[in-house]
Simulated scan of single mutants.
Amino acid sequence: MKNKYLLFVLLFIIGTSSYALKTDASKPVEITADHATFDQKNMVSVFTGNVVITQGTLVVHSEKGTASQDKEGYQTIQLFGSPVTFSQLNDDGEKTEGQGNNFQYTTKTNLAVLSGRARVKKGDNLVIGDKLTYNTQSQIFTANSTDANGVTTTKSGRVTVILQPNQKAQDGNKQSGINLQ
């Protein structure tokens, strides 16, 4: 069933973190919601009300989620909430957590976009902005802000990045002092 294939586009949430627990990808995706609609003709699935998506250690909460596929086979997932939240254990043992009012991923552009008071935290490292974008193919991450990190209406255009020193560097190892991953 093609519509079942559409639901697997939800796996791309995992792709936004290249350090996600590798075994999660082999786990089944479970979606629970108050209501679901499957439009076979137009290749669109919609989940509404207390949407919870789980796959292995990945847990996503949203108010609404849509998954679609165009005629060319490109897939798009959109999640909406106040906020959409996710958490997942990484292979390195740290947890990645994030939130924003909207999440979108499309296979056509390989872009995952978390927007509206967006923040992603891995371990003690944190990135905050109005729009966080990750290209799953090029592995390029960008952060933009249109209004003081989504907190006020001040047009500051600023993002916040907090990077913790690398523990190995603090312990006297010759590695660099910043851990970006």
Rank of each mutant, 00 (worst) to 15 (best):
S26I: 08
Q175S: 09
H35S: 13
G93A: 10
T146G: 04
Q99G: 07
I31V: 15
Q137P: 01
Y5Q: 15
N90V: 01
Y19A: 09
T107P: 02
G123N: 08
F141T: 01
Y74A: 15
D147V: 00
V113A: 12
Q88D: 04
G172T: 01
K64E: 13
T136H: 08
G157M: 08
T152Q: 10
F80D: 15
T136K: 06
V159I: 12
G129T: 03
L21M: 07
D34V: 09
V52F: 05
N50V: 06
T146D: 13
S145P: 00
N144L: 08
S26T: 05
L21H: 03
K2P: 02
N90D: 07
Q69N: 10
Y5I: 11
Q167N: 13
S26W: 11
T85R: 05
A20P: 00
E94W: 03
Y5C: 06
S68G: 03
V9L: 12
I140F: 15
T152K: 08
T136P: 02
R117W: 05
V52S: 08
Q170T: 02
Q88G: 00
G15N: 08
E72P: 01
E63V: 06
G15D: 12
N125W: 14
A33S: 15
V84D: 05
R119L: 09
S138G: 01
V113G: 04
D24K: 03
T96S: 09
G157V: 00
Q164T: 10
Y134F: 15
Q99E: 14
